[in-house]
Simulated scan of single mutants.
Amino acid sequence: MLIRRNQSQSWLPGISLVVLLLTLLVTLTKGTAPIPPIDVINVLLAKLGLTDSDILATPTGIILWEIRWPRVALAVLAGSTLAISGACYQTLFRNPLADPFILGVSSGAALGAAVAITFWQGAYLTLSAFVGSAVAVAVVYFLGRQDEGADSQQILLAGVAFGSMLSALLSCIMAVFSQQIHLIVFWLMGSLASPVQSLPAVAAVVCFGMAAILFFARDLDLVALGEETAHHLGVNLPLVRLVILGATTLITGAVVSVTGIIGFIGLVVPHMVRNVAGPEHVRLLPLSAVWGATLLLWADSLTRMFTSLVSIPVGVVTALFGGPFFLYILYTSRTGR
């Protein structure tokens, strides 16, 4: 049985990448104007300089590369970021219900976006949302610190309390400036429909943050055994917490500032991957990134496959599927099954 499990795990990374690539191909073919897979492949090869580039100037090339590809790339960035962040939070807080927004990232980003929409007509929205998320987590980390260092449970409680306060401020803004409420609500639902010009910069930030997280993957394995055990095994817990929380905040804030609030990816994907691939973070984190991207791509494709669903933000779709999974985790945690 052990041999079979190890053999299946050795094939898992390759299978996961194949599924992601096939999902990318299928996603690029879907939309109001269906495009054959062979045309998608020809456009991609032309962009890489492997075939004649004339196809890039055709309507098919323009639709694929200037409209659909930025949206697909944003979905890959967002899905992988939220999944990796969720895996890290669940390990640090030893809480199966922890997700990337538990430290006030979503509340801070939402408040920053609401301020930009209300007072600056949407200008500086991405910057305001990112600053809001970063400030929120910095305050939460400060409130969660103790004399001997940061405590995971104190940080968790501080995140819940401060996030609730920021949500109350957001409600006040929406009540006072009701003429902007529809724009704020749409942003809160999460969407991939409007990739920004700063997408390469967001990708660079995400790659930097993920590299920092992967560097501490072995330390996360020890933290998962318990903080006392990790300390006796030589793990510098304050440093690991600071780096992991800082990196996850950086990448999650960067993505959320562009997409809005997309929930449950960071909750669902790490659980699915951990059950199949095991708890080792060297394997768990990359696979979570791949399947987070895949799941978000399928959720976004669902809204574009049917004309009646085009106006529904992808955050609504992930919530519809993630909500029942959240309740399942809550039930199994309570019953111990």
Rank of each mutant, 00 (worst) to 15 (best):
Pro13Lys: 10
Leu17Met: 14
Leu20Trp: 13
Thr29Asp: 06
Pro37Met: 12
Ile38Thr: 15
Asn42Pro: 00
Leu45Val: 00
Lys47Phe: 03
Leu48Ala: 15
Ile55Arg: 09
Ala57Thr: 15
Ile67Asn: 01
Arg71Met: 04
Arg71Asn: 04
Ala78Met: 10
Thr81Met: 06
Ala87Pro: 03
Ala87Ile: 03
Cys88Leu: 04
Leu92Cys: 07
Phe93Gly: 04
Asn95Leu: 08
Leu97Asn: 09
Gly104His: 07
Ser107Arg: 02
Ser107Glu: 05
Ala110Met: 03
Phe119Val: 11
Phe119His: 11
Gly122Gln: 11
Leu127Asp: 01
Ser133Thr: 06
Ala136Thr: 15
Leu143Val: 14
Gly149Thr: 04
Leu156Met: 11
Leu156Asn: 04
Val160Met: 14
Ser164Gln: 13
Leu166Trp: 09
Leu169Tyr: 09
Val176Met: 12
His182Val: 13
Ile184His: 05
Phe186Met: 06
Ser191Val: 00
Leu192His: 01
Ala201Thr: 12
Ala203Met: 09
Val206Ala: 07
Ile213Trp: 01
Leu214Arg: 00
Phe215Trp: 06
Glu228Cys: 08
Glu228Met: 13
Ala230His: 15
His231Ala: 15
Pro238Gly: 03
Val243Lys: 06
Val256Glu: 01
Ile265His: 06
Leu267Val: 03
Ala277Val: 05
Val282His: 13
Ala289Cys: 11
Gly292Lys: 13
Trp298Met: 08
Asp300Glu: 14
Leu302Asp: 02
Arg304Trp: 10
Val310Gln: 14
Thr318Trp: 03
Ala319Gln: 00
Gly323Thr: 13
Phe326Cys: 02
Ile329Cys: 01
Arg334His: 14
Arg337Leu: 12
